[in-house]
Computed example of a mutant assay.
Amino acid sequence: MSTSPATSAVRSKGRFFRANLWLHRWASLVATPFFLVLCITGAILIFHEEIDEALGYVPAVERAGNAAPKPLADIVAAAQKQLPELRPISVFVDIEHPERTVVGMAPLTATKLEEGKPYFYNSYSGEPLGTTDFEKTPTGFILELHANWFAGFFGQLFGGLIALLVLISLISGVVVYAPYVRKLLFGMIRRGRGTRLVQLDLHNFIGAVVLGWALVVTITGVALALGGVALAIWQSTELKEMATKTPVAADATPLVLTALPVTIDQAVTAAQAALPDKRPYFLIWPGTDFSSPRHYMILMSGTQPYDERLFDVALVDAVSGQLADARPLPLYLKAILISEPLHFGDYGGLPLKLLWVASSLLTLFITGNGAWLWWARRRRAVARTATAVTR
């Protein structure tokens, strides 16, 4: 006997629902213990700057009114004088805190940017303000746990897998919750019919409220987990290509990285001539994994709130002072750069941060009560089975 199209559609719809129910349940259960950790650490990291400043890990400097900051070369020279056994490897120009400049100082043989240690200087006087090993601060410890589970690159990928499982749980949860929306008033909590039903209604209601936030955080979490891979691709392709624009002469003598012919200010001038609507944000010396043996690399940021996180890259010859190449970052890196402030609610000041914390705590609740709902259902099923066997 043939099955009618209507019956097939109902069965197909039922299979689709059951498949999503299975996905929602098991993706959530697998991710729950790890996602609880991510919710707690993420809520703390939203205020990592404020925490670091309150604990004294970031020096406080009063702004000098309309005073002009010292040339970057002068601040770098002060760092070299203070730390002659090290060499400058980077300079960070803090857009939100122009009163302080951060110089990365590294061992003379260093070739990796991560080998640099940040030293703070007063942007107006050049006075040293101390240094901080951010990996050893409370927020540094929490960030290491949140970002890579203390397991480096593979921990970062694991975190991305957890974010992907949560994303699957969210999408399948929408499919599972949709039929209930037609039967119940949105936000209705059915009381007087048992704790489990109340918890289920709370799970569905709060899940719907934070759905948009959770989608943003999980999608950006996946993107950030792939950041190391994306960066490696860019280094081996576009950055390598840019560095070939100024060939080194056959008789060129090796650069003395502690006394380059072209100062950092001259390099910035060349970059700004090519990118007049941009400002210097992060500057990297030659001889690192983010530059070349001959070039400064300068990240130039936009001047407006909507593009201050989107960088153009300029490579400037450290011998001639001429621009080798300037181009925007590729779209895949721009997506990752945008993901970080979205992930931590760092786009709209205090109101957005408070919203992010509230959403994190609500998500923490529904993650925990979702696990409880599964356990309560399983316990009831086991109890029913045991009762049937004893009869």
Rank of each mutant, 00 (worst) to 15 (best):
Y180Q: 13
L143P: 01
L354I: 15
L108D: 07
N148E: 11
N20H: 10
R294A: 04
L145M: 14
P280W: 04
V316K: 14
A67I: 02
A243N: 14
T385C: 12
R309W: 12
P71L: 07
K112I: 00
A232P: 00
P98E: 05
V103T: 00
I336Q: 09
R100Q: 08
A252N: 06
L354C: 12
W374L: 05
L164E: 00
D317I: 03
I44T: 07
G42S: 12
A178D: 10
P33W: 08
D325Y: 11
R327G: 01
Q235T: 11
A249P: 00
A110V: 03
V181K: 15
E49A: 05
L215D: 07
V216H: 12
R193V: 06
D289S: 06
V217M: 13
Y124R: 02
V268T: 11
I142A: 08
L355I: 15
A273Q: 14
V166F: 13
R309Q: 10
G116N: 05
M105F: 06
G345S: 08
S8R: 15
Q322I: 03
I162F: 08
V61L: 06
T218M: 12
E50G: 06
E127G: 02
A147N: 14
K353E: 11
G104I: 00
D94K: 04
L373E: 03
G126C: 00
S236H: 15
R391L: 14
G130P: 07
T367K: 00
L86F: 10
Q80H: 02
S359N: 12
C39H: 12
L113G: 03
L257I: 07
Q82V: 01
S123A: 14
P179D: 10
L323N: 07
L36D: 03
V217R: 10
D312A: 08
Q156K: 15
W149H: 07
V229L: 00
L202C: 10
D307H: 02
D277A: 09
R18N: 13
E99K: 06
P138M: 04
V319A: 03
W285L: 00
K112A: 08
W285A: 01
E115L: 04
V262L: 05
V313Y: 07
R190S: 08
A318G: 08
Y121C: 00
K240N: 13
T253W: 06
A274M: 08
A19E: 02
L257A: 01
M300E: 05
Q272A: 04
V256C: 01
W356C: 03
K136F: 02
T3N: 09
G152M: 08
P128N: 06
G14S: 11
L299N: 13
F17K: 14
V382E: 15
M188Y: 09
G348D: 08
I338C: 04
A335M: 12
E114I: 15
F150Y: 14
V357P: 12
T244V: 04
E53C: 03
Y296D: 06
